[in-house]
C-alpha cells in the first residue's frame, strides 16, 4: 500500500500545483499594451502562434 501511496501523493500534489498555477495565470490580466501583440500572433482559426495562415 505504501509503495503506491507515495507516487500517488507526489503526482497528486504536482497536478494540484499545475491546476493552481494555471488558475492564477488565467486570472492575471494581460497588460493592455501587450493585448495587440497576443492578438497579432495567433491565427484566427486555430489560435496557434506557429500557424502560418495569418502571416
Amino acid at each position: 500500500m505504501g509503495n503506491i501511496l507515495v507516487p500517488v501523493l507526489v503526482i497528486g500534489s504536482l497536478v494540484t500545483m499545475y491546476i493552481v498555477t494555471y488558475m492564477l495565470n488565467k486570472n492575471t490580466p494581460i497588460p493592455e499594451e501587450c493585448l495587440l501583440v497576443v492578438d497579432e500572433a495567433t491565427c484566427e482559426s486555430c489560435h496557434s502562434f506557429t500557424c502560418g495562415n495569418k502571416k
Binding site: 507526489v10 503526482i11 497536478v15 499545475y18 498555477t21 492564477l24 495565470n25
Partner: peptide, 18 residues
C-alpha cells in the same frame, strides 16, 4: 513528474512576467 513540473513552471513564469 517532470512534465507536470515544466507545465506548472511555464504557467508560473508567465504569470510573474505578466
Amino acid at each position: 513528474a517532470f512534465i507536470l513540473v515544466i507545465a506548472s513552471l511555464v504557467q508560473f513564469v508567465e504569470m510573474v512576467i505578466k
